[in-house]
Design a protein around this nucleic acid. Structure first.
Length: 270
DNA sequence: AAGGTTACCTGCCCGC
DNA sequence: TGCGGGCAGGTAACCT
């Protein structure tokens, strides 16, 4: 499901649960990506101190030095509801002292929930080797040029490499390359400085705009309040195979790169 | 050792 | 209507 703008939107919505105290915990029988390090019943009687995002991971800090690390995978939802109805793909839930519930629902179960000591977060295998946030100052021209100059793989695959920059997934990789006017199958180390500069700017712009639109909803993405995003209305190429390019009217093309669909305009992108 | 391929899952949509 | 194939927003363990 989610790329950075979607996870950011979910996180913003979760501010509702700030300071609430956990009264009950629920875990389904089904396996997620992996099991929690600590027993989730440890959360009982502890309060939510903070909610953060790093890359596509959601971090909820609780009292007594515990943190919940959550990834939504492809199909995960993290929703606050008044009544918990144990739907088919509900795998984890917390009931708070005001009787509201925080529910993790994930049909494909590529996501996970982990509970660990906050001080161990930095060492967590999923967080330890991440590149910079796309909107941060560390993601700058010097850094980006250096990273790409080492890479022989196509530029679209590099954009989706979390060691280079986090949070840019299949949608925003295609959209950023279109915005920058760069063909997705160019080799990363073949980009000229002016192209790297353009691409850097486009990634930041697209991610920023998508956050403002509360993310993109294609099939089933919803935020913590159950609301869809609207950035799908701004797609220039993604999921527009054989539709007219909004700029030049030529037909949008689709190719497979690393097993994932890439959309682009062969006239506007060089 | 970088870079490509496969696995992990369920659901939906399309063509036959 | 049913069934098989292909596809889906992610990540990392495997191979070469």
């Amino acid at each position: 499901m989610p790329e950075l703008p979607e996870v950011e939107t979910v996180c913003k919505g979760l501010k509702d649960i700030m300071d609430k105290r956990v009264e009950k915990v629920f875990r389904s029988e089904k396996k997620l990506r992996f099991e929690t390090q600590m027993d989730i019943s440890e959360l009982k009687n502890n309060s939510v101190l903070d909610i953060k995002r790093r890359a596509r991971y959601i971090i909820i800090d609780f009292s007594r030095g515990m943190s919940l690390l959550v990834h939504l995978g492809m199909s995960g939802k993290f929703i606050v509801v008044d009544k918990f109805s144990k739907l088919k793909h509900d795998h984890f839930a917390l009931q708070f002292n005001d009787n509201s519930w925080l529910v993790f629902n994930d049909a494909r179960r590529f996501g996970f929930v982990d509970l660990l000591k906050s001080k161990n977060l930095g060492k967590h295998k999923m967080l330890a080797n991440l590149g910079p946030e796309p909107l941060s100052d560390e993601f700058n021209l010097k850094y980006f040029s250096e990273q790409l100059s080492n890479k022989k793989m196509n530029i679209k695959t590099s954009l989706m490499d979390n060691k280079i920059v986090v949070g840019v997934g299949n949608i925003y990789a295609s959209e950023s390359l279109f915005d920058a006017g760069i063909l997705p199958d160019k080799l990363s180390n073949s980009l000229k400085e002016i192209e790297v500069r353009k691409l850097l700017k486009s990634i930041k712009k697209i991610i920023k705009n998508a956050i403002q639109a509360n993310g993109s909803s294609i099939r089933d993405y919803v935020d913590s309040g159950g609301n869809a995003g609207s950035f799908q209305n701004n797609f220039k190429v993604y999921s527009r195979f054989e539709e007219k390019c909004l700029i030049c009217k030529d037909l949008i093309k689709k190719i497979k790169q690393n097993g994932r669909s890439t959309f682009y305009c062969s006239t506007c992108q060089k």
